[in-house]
Computed example of a mutant assay.
Amino acid sequence: MAWRLMTPEDLAQVQVLADMIHVDHPEDRAVLAERQRLYPTGCFMLTEDEHAIGYAFTHPWHLGEPPRLNRMLGELPSSPTTYYIHDVALLPTARGRGYAAQVTDRLIAHAREAGFDNLSLVAVNKSQTFWEKAGFRVLAAEGLKAKLASYGPDAALMMHRLASPPRGA
């Protein structure tokens, strides 16, 4: 079992998963499809016996300005300042099996290869501890209280700073 790149054909399964996993944070299929279309190299699927059990959406963005939930982006920024993890979602039966850590490692490697010096996300649904173990830290979010509140009461803006490569590397 491994994470693979998401295709447009996966979006129906992604929507089913999203509706089951994020009952309090629904997103329209058009929003998810736009994310996959805008940055296909940052969208992943996890399947088991040909059944979708998880997905991830990521894309370049502006640090400290998380996109609103269930809103179209329009386009990606020409000068992004973070590699943004929009969502890593797993069915309850897939949790605790190392899949989230696998895709997180892949996302960190992708961000580094793409030249980003950080990744950011909004932790929700009591996931802050997981992200802290992966090297993310809460980022002060002055002026973002209202936007973060739309993500839920435990929402926290987090960032993972990537170490600079060794000199001569």
Rank of each mutant, 00 (worst) to 15 (best):
8 P>N: 12
9 E>I: 12
10 D>N: 10
11 L>K: 03
13 Q>L: 14
14 V>Q: 02
14 V>G: 02
17 L>M: 10
18 A>F: 07
18 A>H: 14
18 A>Y: 07
19 D>Q: 15
22 H>F: 15
27 E>H: 00
34 E>D: 04
34 E>Q: 13
34 E>W: 05
40 P>R: 02
41 T>H: 01
41 T>D: 02
42 G>L: 04
48 E>I: 01
49 D>M: 02
52 A>Q: 07
56 A>F: 08
59 H>I: 03
66 P>F: 07
66 P>E: 08
67 P>N: 07
70 N>Q: 05
71 R>A: 12
73 L>M: 15
74 G>K: 08
78 S>V: 10
84 Y>N: 13
84 Y>L: 04
86 H>E: 00
92 P>W: 03
93 T>F: 00
103 V>R: 03
103 V>Q: 03
104 T>E: 01
105 D>A: 11
108 I>C: 04
111 A>F: 02
112 R>Y: 06
114 A>S: 15
123 A>Q: 02
128 Q>F: 00
128 Q>N: 00
129 T>N: 07
129 T>R: 14
134 A>L: 04
136 F>V: 09
138 V>H: 12
138 V>S: 12
141 A>N: 10
142 E>A: 13
142 E>F: 01
148 L>R: 15
150 S>T: 06
156 A>V: 12
164 S>V: 09
165 P>H: 13
166 P>N: 15
168 G>W: 11
169 A>T: 08
